[in-house]
Design a protein around this nucleic acid. Structure first.
Length: 419
DNA sequence: TGAACTCGAGTATCCACAGTAGTTA
DNA sequence: GCTAACTACTGTGGATACTCGAGTT
């Protein structure tokens, strides 16, 4: 990745495609992602104007630059800079320049492209309404309030027109904080996050929908030993999860808080390290939190994702203060939104109810946790729909595929062998 | 208290075969 | 450099066997 387009190597790269791990100019973006229906699903976002390697998360309206989380924090001061910032949404499909300008209200600020063909090409783009899937809610919820204030997205109908992601009222603009482009260290203020969450209710989305999309269920899977992992520091972590709508964590909190003897080093560390610091997850056994939070179903190296049972028993997940070692980029490939770990402010004052747990409450929480775990969907991503279609109709004997023409005991097309 | 047993949850494996990727002529 | 032919590999779903931990006897 670099300044020049990874595809043509000539034009200045402007957008980042996580699926391709490529930085592309607008022209090549259109060419590459109009090739087929699958490529049109790739979510892209702007490149950081400073490092030109990471997907941008925010647009600084004061400096007119797009910044990734790293550059926003390191060179820009994050939210502390006081600059008015706008969240940069992901998009998919082949939006036109006009549509991009509606997704990104600042799009017109961009200097004219050196190659006029690019802009011309952009004008030829079209959004494929059927080629994209929903990652998250509508932009008026997931973007910053500034958009609405600016009157760019204050009309739901207008927003829906821009939104091919959720059926008839969908958007192609997705908050990169929540989309697959990765979740860098967060400087999204809590207000924004709460707004985004409250918006889910308006859209008919539940919190379950939210954390399912963010693979939080997978996190549950990894953290079998949640009571040990979270210990009694839940009062802090609770706020973060609560902000993000993770009621499962609230349940964990209830369960763990009932076990008052679950005190770890982490508690002391988190409380003394100062609440202004974003947290960093660390493993005592050198397994990075990144690894743990990343795709739990990975077969490539399970040991990196899911510690052995023995190791898990000795694990202590530490949500301590932020250290400079943990860059935003470290989290960008996490299946889970790292905003959960890097949000600002990371730790809010302890919730008043956190100190009053009863055995009944614990039982209730355990029950709810088990029910939710039972109802959890283990959906896997289908990479080849054609293969799935064939497998769906392929005849089997005791679950195994059989050669065409041979006897079978299961026909998915008629469910009974008699047919 | 520890051993043996049961139960449930989760995971690995198997199968055929179309499609993809890489190599060679 | 391009094309065709060939080989090797991948991924798909359902049933089953297996492992492991927790609970019970």
């Amino acid at each position: 990745m670099g300044l020049l387009c990874d595809f043509c190597g000539e034009q200045r790269s402007m957008v980042y495609c996580r699926s391709d791990a490529a930085c592309l100019c607008l022209s090549c973006d259109r060419n590459v992602h109009s090739a087929n229906a699958l490529s049109r699903r790739h979510s892209r976002t702007l490149l950081c104007d400073r490092c030109i390697t990471q997907p941008a998360i925010f647009r600084c309206m004061e400096e007119h630059v797009s910044l990734c989380q790293n550059c926003d924090w390191n060179g820009h001061g994050g939210s502390a800079s006081g600059h008015k910032r706008q969240t940069i949404n992901c998009y998919s499909g082949c939006p036109s320049a006009a549509e991009l300008s509606r997704i990104w209200s600042f799009f017109q600020e961009f200097p004219p492209l050196p190659d006029s063909n690019c802009e011309q090409g952009m004008g030829l783009m079209s959004i494929n309404e059927n080629s994209v899937s929903n990652f998250w809610g509508a932009p008026e919820n997931s973007s910053t309030i500034d958009i609405a204030k600016a009157g760019k997205m204050n009309d739901l109908e207008t927003a829906n027109k821009l939104n091919p992601w959720i059926g008839s009222s969908s958007t192609s603009a997705v908050n990169p904080m929540l989309c697959g482009a990765g979740q860098p260290a967060g400087s999204v203020d809590s207000t924004t996050r709460k707004l985004a969450l409250s918006g889910t209710k308006d859209l008919g989305l539940s919190k379950d929908d939210f954390y399912e999309d963010l693979n939080m269920d997978d996190v549950d899977l990894n953290f079998e030993n949640y009571e040990e992992l979270f210990g009694a520091s839940l009062s802090n972590a609770e706020q973060l999860f609560d902000d993000a709508g993770f009621d499962s964590f609230f349940e964990l909190k209830e369960i763990s808080a009932a076990n008052s003897n679950c005190q770890g080093e982490f508690v002391t560390e988190a409380s003394s390290a100062g609440q202004a610091k974003p947290m960093q997850a660390t493993y005592s056994n050198a397994v990075s939190a990144d690894s743990v939070m990343s795709n739990p179903g990975s077969k490539a190296d399970p040991s990196l994702c899911i510690p052995t049972r023995q190791a898990r028993s000795s694990l202590s997940l530490s949500f301590s203060g932020l250290t400079g070692e943990s860059s935003a980029g470290d989290y960008q490939d996490c299946g889970m939104s790292s905003g959960l770990f890097m949000g600002e402010p990371p730790w809010c004052p302890t919730a008043p109810e956190s100190s009053s747990y009863t055995p009944a409450g614990r039982d209730s929480a355990v029950m709810r946790y088990k029910e939710k775990k039972k109802a959890r969907k283990f959906e896997k991503k289908i990479r080849y729909a054609s293969r799935k279609a064939r497998a769906d109709v392929r005849r089997r004997v005791k679950g195994r595929f059989v050669k065409a023409g041979e006897a079978y005991d299961y026909d998915p097309l008629c469910k009974t062998r008699s047919c």
